[in-house]
Design a protein around this nucleic acid. Structure first.
Length: 207
DNA sequence: AGCCAGGGTCTAA
DNA sequence: TTAGACCATGGC
């Protein structure tokens, strides 16, 4: 089973996925909050404070206030620092982003403390509409359950690049679809009711 | 009560 | 370069 047929199956089963957010800074803010944290926590935290989620507001408020706001998402001491550096970076950089290469943006993001491959990928894809396959824990588990093993994330990315176009929308939709699928299906053991991959899924046989 | 959640950094070997 | 400790809270 190749990546293109995985994508097709996901679309057929779950329909057109939603985009993370149309606002780049909202993507950054939430991408940090969601690190090793459930999406529900992030949604509850962001509910009602939409007007504070922009670089200027973040830089204006003191660090204690920001920590208090994001506390329910855990790791709030580290995450508040990361969000501030993102706000700083984006505030200074946003006008020149359209002229920057994806690789340059990725390098700059990775240089910020608290931003790793996955968070950078999410920001590039959903925030800046740059093509990049995002490999997260769910993606790894999903591929493994399909019986596909890889030496590392570079190989996983290559697997997706092999049969899918180099396109930001596809990358974003694929990631969102995998997430949706895994939350409904892969997260539960031992059986996923109505799983569109049931015929090839080796759940429980993955370690 | 204990485990997991859409990670990332630091250290030791 | 890789494994393990650590960060912290909320939901089930």
């Amino acid at each position: 089973m190749n990546a293109a047929s995985i994508y097709r199956t996901l679309i057929e089963s779950y329909g057109k996925p939603r985009w993370w957010s149309d606002d780049p800074f909202t993507v950054m803010f939430q991408a940090v909050l969601v690190q090793n944290t459930s999406w529900g926590n992030v949604e509850r935290t962001c509910q009602g404070i939409e007007h504070l989620i922009d670089p200027e507001s973040v830089l204006e408020m003191d660090e204690e206030a920001l920590m208090e706001i994001i506390r329910p998402c855990g790791f709030y001491r580290a995450k508040s620092k990361t969000i501030r550096s993102l706000a700083d970076w984006y505030h200074a950089r946003k006008d020149s982003i359209p002229d920057s290469s994806t690789e340059a943006l990725r390098t700059e993001l990775l240089a910020l403390k608290g931003i790793g491959e996955e968070t950078a990928g999410a920001i590039l894809v959903y925030g800046f509409h740059r093509p990049m396959f995002i490999i997260d824990k769910y993606t790894r588990r999903f591929l493994k359950r399909l019986g596909l093993s890889f030496a590392g994330d570079a190989e996983r990315r290559a697997f997706f690049r092999e049969t899918l176009p180099d396109d930001a929308e596809i990358a974003g939709y694929l990631h969102w679809l995998l997430l949706e699928h895994c939350i409904q299906c892969c997260r539960s053991t031992p059986l996923c009711p109505g799983c569109p991959f049931a015929h090839s899924c080796r759940k429980g046989d993955e370690r």
